[in-house]
Design a protein around this nucleic acid. Structure first.
Length: 141
DNA sequence: GCCAACGTTGGC
DNA sequence: GCCAACGTTGGC
């Protein structure tokens, strides 16, 4: 099981929008960056990822799960762009902000802290646990 | 709204 | 294949 982080602007598509999609989830489409795409290609069904709100909030607000392997992005002209499907799993008890992540020694190597522009990021198991710890765990949707 | 950082593009 | 120019992203 691997861990990831999905970044989105909440005024375009926020965690609540993903929750509204229910168990069927949603294509994580629109990614036009090779690193982000390659991360999605590496995902397995059942992998989990943090859902991070950029610009507004700048915080980890919930957890999503990969429910379909990478497939061609239906919104792309070029089949080289692929995306996975994800669904919302749970909220964090307390959102963890970017400022808090930057101030946390355990997260000093986290991609979010060092390269916040990458929209789909890998998260190590230690980072995953640290964020969950800071968030006070998760709660049902 | 500004600007720094980053990725991509295209001329050479 | 290098690198300058450009566009986009996202924190501030």
């Amino acid at each position: 099981m691997a861990y990831w982080l999905f970044k989105s602007e909440p005024d375009v598509f926020g965690f609540d929008d993903l929750i509204a999609k229910g168990d069927k989830g949603e294509e994580w489409d629109g990614v036009r960056n090779y690193q982000a795409r390659n991360n999605m290609r590496a995902m397995q069904v059942g992998d989990q990822g943090f859902f991070y709100h950029s610009n507004i909030g700048k915080e980890v607000v919930g957890i999503a799960e990969v429910i379909a392997l990478a497939h061609p992005d239906s919104t792309a002209d070029d089949p080289k762009w692929e995306c996975v499907d994800i669904r919302a799993v749970s909220r964090v008890v307390r959102p963890v902000t970017l400022d808090e992540a930057k101030a946390e020694p355990r997260l000093k190597d986290m991609v979010l802290v060092n390269n916040s522009r990458l929209s789909v990021q890998p998260v190590s198991e230690a980072e995953w646990k640290a964020i969950l710890d800071m968030a006070g765990g998760t709660k049902a949707l």
